[in-house]
C-alpha cells in the first residue's frame, strides 16, 4: 500500500506560552518551540504500522518554508520512507482550501492508495483532510481511531461524541483524518534523526506542481485572519495569591465551604 501522510510544523502548545504581538498581526514567534502537529504524529505512526503489515511505502509531505524539512526528517526517523517539501512564496497566506489545493497537486504527481492527515492542527480548523478528499473525489472519514485493512477496503472506526466509535467500511483509495490515541507513536531518538540527516528531500514549488499561483496564497484566500486580539474577559477566576502555604490554606477553606472535602 502506498501511503501519503500530510504533516505540519506547528508551535508546540504544550511547551509554549503563546503571546500576541502588540500590533496583532501575528503571535510572537521568536522563542517558540516547534514540533510536528500532535495529530500528524499519530497519523505517521499508523501509516508505518500499516506498511509494516501489508507492505508498500510511507511518504510524508508538508506545505511550508524550508524549516518544514525538520519535521519531515523527524517523521522519516520514525520510519517514513520518503519526504516531500512543498514550498513557494506563492503559497504564503493560503487558507485551508489553498493548502488542500497545493496538496492535491502533489497527490496527483504520485500514486497513493491511502492519504492521511491529522484530525486538526494548531488553528483547530480540522478542514484540510476533508477538503483534499473532496478535491480528489475520494471517500473520506474524519477522526479515525481504528484502521483495519481488509481486501482492498478499509474498516475504519471514527471517534464520535461520548467516546463512542462509529464503524465504517470505506473503499480505497481514500483519505482519512487521524485522531489522537489511535496508537502509541514511537519514540524518536537523536540517533534516528542522525541516520536520515543526509537523505535528499525534494522541494517542489508552484511551477513544479503545475499550480496556478492565483488559486493559492493570500490573494486567493476567501477566509482571512484580520488580526489576533486579546478578548475582554469576564471576571475569570479569583486568583489566589501569596505563598504556597497561604494558597493551600485559602483553598482548603474554600473546599470546605463548597463540600469538596470529606
Amino acid at each position: 500500500m502506498e501511503i501519503l501522510v500530510c504533516v505540519k510544523r506547528v508551535p508546540d502548545t504544550a511547551e509554549n506560552e503563546i503571546e500576541i504581538k502588540s500590533d496583532g498581526t501575528d503571535i510572537k514567534r521568536d522563542d517558540l518551540v516547534y514540533s510536528v502537529n500532535e495529530w500528524d504524529n499519530y497519523a505517521v505512526e499508523e501509516a508505518i504500522q500499516i506498511r509494516d503489515k501489508v507492505g508498500g511505502s510511507v511518504t510524508v509531505i508538508t506545505v511550508g518554508d524550508e524549516e518544514g524539512e525538520e519535521v519531515l526528517r523527524r517523521q522519516m526517523a520514525m520510519g517514513a520512507d520518503n519526504g516531500i517539501l512543498l514550498s513557494d512564496s506563492a503559497f504564503e497566506g493560503s487558507d485551508g482550501r489553498g493548502i488542500a489545493t497545493i496538496l492535491k497537486a502533489a497527490v496527483e504527481k504520485g500514486k497513493y492508495d491511502l492519504i492521511m492527515t491529522g484530525a486538526q492542527a494548531d488553528d483547530g480548523a480540522a478542514q484540510v483532510g476533508g477538503m483534499l478528499a473532496a478535491m480528489l473525489d475520494l471517500p473520506y472519514a474524519s477522526l479515525v481511531n481504528k484502521v483495519e485493512v481488509d481486501n482492498g477496503k478499509l474498516k475504519v472506526g471514527r471517534e464520535i461524541e461520548g467516546g463512542n466509535q462509529e464503524m465504517n467500511e470505506i473503499e480505497l483509495p481514500c483519505v482519512l483524518s487521524i485522531q489522537t490515541g489511535i496508537n502509541e507513536p514511537r519514540y524518536v531518538g537523536i540517533r534516528g534523526i542522525r541516520k536520515v540527516a543526509s537523505v535528499e528531500i525534494p522541494t517542489l514549488a508552484a511551477g513544479d506542481l503545475g499550480i496556478d499561483a492565483a488559486t493559492v496564497g493570500a490573494g486567493a484566500a476567501r477566509v482571512k485572519r484580520v488580526d489576533y486580539f486579546t478578548p475582554e474577559m469576564g471576571e475569570g477566576a479569583e486568583i489566589l495569591e501569596g505563598s504556597m502555604e497561604e494558597k493551600i490554606d485559602k483553598l482548603i477553606e474554600l473546599l470546605k465551604a463548597k463540600g469538596g472535602l470529606k
Binding site: 478542514q127 476533508g130 477538503m131 473532496a134 472519514a141 474524519s142 477522526l143 471514527r158 471517534e159 461524541e161
Partner: peptide, 12 residues
C-alpha cells in the same frame, strides 16, 4: 464530529 466529517468537503 458530524460537521467535521461533512462540512469541509461540502465547502469544496
Amino acid at each position: 464530529t458530524f460537521a467535521m466529517d461533512l462540512a469541509p468537503g461540502l465547502a469544496v
